[in-house]
Amino acid sequence: MTIDRAVLTMAGTVVLISVLLAALVSNWWLLLTVFVGLNLIQSAFTGFCPAALIFKKLGLKPGVAFG
């Protein structure tokens, strides 16, 4: 698995968990989805993603986006 795929997998998982928690617990959990979305947008423009740095330290191979 590359860093790119790991970041997308993690972001998708967090979004789905956030939506589930919003449906079952409180609508305030949707703020987590907003945070993930904003982070994805800023990383598209800046190339900086904290999750990518963590996955790189864990030894995942770089991909195209986070090389």
Results as ranks from 00 to 15, higher is better:
1 M>N: 10
1 M>R: 10
3 I>P: 03
3 I>G: 06
5 R>A: 14
5 R>M: 11
5 R>H: 10
6 A>E: 05
7 V>S: 10
7 V>M: 07
9 T>Y: 12
9 T>R: 12
10 M>G: 03
11 A>I: 01
12 G>N: 04
12 G>S: 04
12 G>K: 01
13 T>S: 13
13 T>R: 05
13 T>I: 09
14 V>M: 14
15 V>R: 01
15 V>H: 00
15 V>W: 00
16 L>Q: 15
16 L>A: 15
16 L>Y: 08
16 L>V: 12
17 I>M: 14
17 I>L: 15
17 I>Q: 12
18 S>E: 00
18 S>T: 03
19 V>A: 11
19 V>D: 02
19 V>F: 08
19 V>E: 04
21 L>C: 02
21 L>E: 00
22 A>G: 12
23 A>Y: 09
24 L>E: 11
25 V>M: 13
25 V>A: 15
26 S>M: 04
26 S>Y: 05
27 N>W: 11
27 N>Y: 08
27 N>V: 13
28 W>N: 10
29 W>F: 12
29 W>I: 01
30 L>Y: 10
30 L>H: 03
31 L>E: 03
32 L>I: 13
33 T>N: 02
33 T>S: 14
33 T>P: 00
34 V>I: 15
35 F>P: 00
35 F>K: 00
37 G>T: 04
38 L>H: 04
38 L>V: 14
39 N>Y: 09
39 N>Q: 11
40 L>C: 10
40 L>A: 15
40 L>T: 05
40 L>D: 07
40 L>F: 08
40 L>P: 02
41 I>D: 00
42 Q>G: 03
42 Q>W: 12
43 S>K: 01
46 T>C: 05
46 T>P: 03
47 G>L: 05
48 F>T: 09
48 F>H: 10
50 P>R: 05
50 P>L: 14
51 A>D: 01
52 A>L: 07
52 A>Q: 09
53 L>V: 08
53 L>W: 09
53 L>D: 11
54 I>D: 00
54 I>R: 00
54 I>H: 00
55 F>D: 03
55 F>C: 07
55 F>L: 13
56 K>W: 11
57 K>E: 09
57 K>I: 03
58 L>M: 15
58 L>C: 14
59 G>Y: 02
60 L>H: 13
60 L>F: 15
61 K>D: 15
61 K>Y: 04
62 P>Y: 08
62 P>N: 11
62 P>I: 05
63 G>L: 10
63 G>E: 10
64 V>N: 12
64 V>F: 12
65 A>W: 08
65 A>H: 13
